[in-house]
Computed example of a mutant assay.
Amino acid sequence: MGMGVASSSARRGKRSRRAAMAEINVTPLVDVMLVLLIIFMVTVTLPAVGVPVELPESRAAPVEEQPDQVTISIDRAGVIYIENEAVEAGRLPEALEALDRGGQPPLIVLRGDRSLDYGRVMRVMGELGRAGFTSISLVTDGSVTPP
């Protein structure tokens, strides 16, 4: 009986000297992955367009972003922006013609300030339709109360 205990302890001693440590510390890997996840979550939720526009409220379903969409914004002063670049007054048709269509017209996402005159937004939509952009989504802020 004593001999069995001695032999098992002798085996353990030999094995511990020969075998390499087989443990991997995954804590740094998990830390890095969590930081990357947080960075990804923050950058995804940032607005794609930097033009400050106070959007009207609506209970409409959110618009899904598409990779080839073009965002057109109209700020409080009535200045029109294609993505982040201002369009000179009266130059919207030329700016729309310059957009790369790549076969079919891209989805247009129209963001208009809530203080704008309805006619101003409709004139921009009319120019979009005249230029051949028929798929237009209007962007609003979410609302919890019905009108």
Rank of each mutant, 00 (worst) to 15 (best):
M3K: 06
V5H: 07
A6K: 07
A6P: 00
S7V: 13
S8G: 03
S9Y: 06
A10C: 03
A10L: 13
A10T: 07
A10D: 10
R11V: 06
K14H: 08
K14D: 09
S16L: 11
S16D: 11
R17D: 06
R18P: 00
R18K: 14
A19G: 02
A19L: 12
A20M: 07
M21D: 14
M21C: 07
A22H: 05
A22Q: 06
N25T: 02
V26L: 12
T27K: 10
P28H: 07
P28F: 09
L29S: 10
L37C: 12
I38Y: 06
F40C: 06
V42N: 05
V42K: 04
T43K: 09
V44N: 05
V44H: 09
V44L: 10
T45W: 10
L46F: 10
P47I: 03
A48E: 11
V49H: 09
V51P: 01
P52S: 04
V53E: 08
E54I: 11
E57V: 08
S58H: 05
S58A: 14
A60K: 13
A60T: 08
V63C: 07
V63W: 05
P67T: 07
D68L: 04
V70D: 04
T71S: 14
S73P: 01
R76Y: 05
A77P: 00
V79I: 11
V79E: 09
V79W: 01
I80M: 04
N84W: 02
V87I: 15
V87E: 07
V87T: 11
A89H: 06
A89P: 00
R91H: 11
L92S: 04
L92N: 03
P93I: 00
E94A: 15
L96D: 00
L96I: 00
L96Y: 01
L96C: 01
A98C: 00
L99D: 08
D100K: 13
D100Y: 08
D100C: 01
D100H: 09
R101I: 15
G102C: 00
Q104S: 15
Q104V: 13
L107N: 03
L107E: 14
I108T: 03
I108C: 05
L110G: 05
R111F: 06
D113N: 11
R114V: 14
R114T: 09
S115Y: 06
L116P: 09
D117V: 09
Y118M: 07
G119Q: 08
V121A: 12
R123Y: 02
R123H: 07
V124K: 01
V124S: 06
M125L: 07
M125Q: 15
G126L: 00
E127Q: 15
L128S: 05
G129C: 00
R130V: 02
A131Q: 03
G132N: 03
G132R: 02
G132Y: 08
T134P: 00
S135M: 04
I136L: 10
L138Y: 09
T140D: 02
D141C: 01
S143T: 08
T145E: 13
T145N: 13
P147H: 11
P147D: 10
P147S: 12
